[in-house]
């Protein structure tokens, strides 16, 4: 592989906070790397284990989940469920040989455009230095 490694990142963002925060980054023209592909959901707690595993199996190098800060959830406490689910899933990923850093959960409010863009830059850096997901390599070898 001589080509420069450009990680593929899938982002699941809740409509009320993180997605709005990403919009805010846009309105404020805060630049960040273009690797992330965002999928909008109403609440971060909508995302289940299968979806995240599916993303990795399909070849994602990383998955980002963005929700509201604790206490700010549009649905009272959906983000607590997300936190629980992601914590469990991280351990599962380790067992599968996927570094935990490839799954990142952040709380970003609708006002935190800057936090969103900084997080994206930082996350992309982390994943770039980690290299392609081990799952992706297995998949590519199989082809």
């Amino acid at each position: 592989m001589t080509e420069e490694f450009k990680p593929k990142i899938v982002g699941f963002l809740c409509n009320w906070c993180c997605y709005a925060g990403a919009d805010m980054a846009g309105t404020s023209r805060m630049k960040y790397p273009s690797n992330i592909r965002i999928i909008r959901v109403m609440c971060s707690s909508r995302i289940n284990t299968e979806m995240i595993i599916k993303a990795f199996q399909t070849g994602a190098d990383a998955v980002f989940i963005g929700g509201c800060h604790f206490g700010d959830c549009h649905y009272v406490d959906g983000n607590y469920r997300t936190k629980k689910r992601i914590d469990v899933l991280k351990r599962l990923l380790s067992h599968m040989g996927i570094e935990q850093e490839r799954l990142r959960l952040e709380w970003v409010s609708a006002a935190e455009g800057e936090k969103f863009s900084k997080t994206m830059a930082e996350f992309t850096d982390t994943i770039t230095s980690l290299g392609p997901s081990p799952l992706r390599e297995i998949k590519e070898e199989a082809i």
Binding site: V10, I39, V41, M42, C43, S45, R46, I47, N48, E50, M51, K54, A55, T58, A60, H74, Y75, G78, R81, R85
Partner: peptide, 27 residues
């Protein structure tokens, strides 16, 4: 919010407009 649909162990809950297959198709 779809929280229940993500957790239902028997997969019985369909979250309209954010169904599993709709999200997976995007992935």
């Amino acid at each position: 919010c779809g929280s229940c649909a993500a957790a239902c162990p028997s997969g019985s809950i369909k979250m309209n407009h954010f169904k599993n297959e709709q999200i997976v198709a995007q992935i």
